[in-house]
Simulated scan of single mutants.
Amino acid sequence: MSLVSGQEVIRECASRGLVAGAFNTTNLETTMGIVQAVEKTGVPTFIQVAPTNAVLSGYEYIYDMVSRRVAGTDVPVALHLDHGRTLDDVRAALAAGFTSIMMDASGHPYDQNVKLSAEARALCPPGIALEVELGSIGGKEDDHGPEREFTTDPAEVADFVEAVGCDLLAVSAGNVHGYAPDARLDLDLLRRIQEAGSVPLVIHGGSGLGADQLGVLSDYDVVKVNVASDLRNAMIRTFGEAYVANPHEYSLIRVSTASVQAISDVVEQRIRSFNPRLGSPVAQS
Rank of each mutant, 00 (worst) to 15 (best):
V255R: 00
A22Q: 10
F98W: 00
M102V: 04
L79G: 12
V132R: 09
I253C: 00
R191K: 14
S106Q: 05
C13P: 01
T52N: 02
G240D: 01
N246Q: 03
S67P: 02
E268C: 10
G58C: 08
S273V: 01
T257L: 05
H204T: 09
T152R: 03
E39H: 03
D143Q: 08
V202S: 14
L94Q: 13
A50K: 03
R270I: 00
S136H: 13
L209R: 00
P146T: 08
L252R: 01
L201N: 15
V171Q: 07
A196Q: 09
I101M: 07
D153W: 07
P154D: 04
S251D: 15
Y220L: 09
D153F: 09
L252I: 01
L134C: 12
A262R: 08
T86F: 04
L214D: 01
M32T: 08
S264G: 14
V43N: 00
N226H: 13
E147W: 02
T26F: 04
F150S: 14
R254S: 02
L123H: 13
Y63H: 15
P276S: 11
L189Q: 03
D74E: 12
L56W: 11
A242Q: 02
S251T: 00
G197Y: 07
H83C: 01
S136Q: 15
T45S: 13
Q36M: 10
D153T: 10
I47Q: 03
V282I: 04
G21M: 06
H177P: 11
G58W: 06
E8H: 15
S198V: 09
G205N: 03
G139K: 06
E268F: 10
P281K: 14
L214Q: 02
Y63G: 14
K224M: 05
A180I: 09
V49Y: 01
Y63V: 11
A122H: 09
V114P: 10
P76Y: 05
A245W: 06
T45K: 07
D142Q: 12
L3T: 08
L116N: 08
A283T: 09
V66P: 01
Y63D: 11
I10W: 02
T152L: 01
R254Y: 00
G58D: 07
D230F: 06
V260C: 12
R184G: 06
L278A: 11
R184T: 09
D153S: 13
G33S: 09
Q112W: 04
I47K: 06
V266L: 04
E195S: 13
G138I: 08
V70H: 03
D104P: 11
N24M: 07
L94R: 14
S229C: 08
A211K: 15
R91S: 15
L56N: 10
T73G: 06
L231V: 12
L214G: 02
S172W: 06
Q112I: 05
T26K: 12
G139F: 05
T26Y: 05
A118T: 04
G84I: 10
V267Y: 03
D104K: 13
L201C: 14
V43D: 00
V176Y: 12
G174H: 08
E195V: 04
P276E: 08
P281C: 12
R270P: 00
S218V: 14
Q269F: 06
E8C: 09
E149I: 05
Y61D: 06
D186M: 11
V176Q: 15
S136I: 11
G84C: 13
N27F: 04
A183T: 11
N175K: 15
G279E: 05
V176I: 15
D104N: 12
L18C: 02
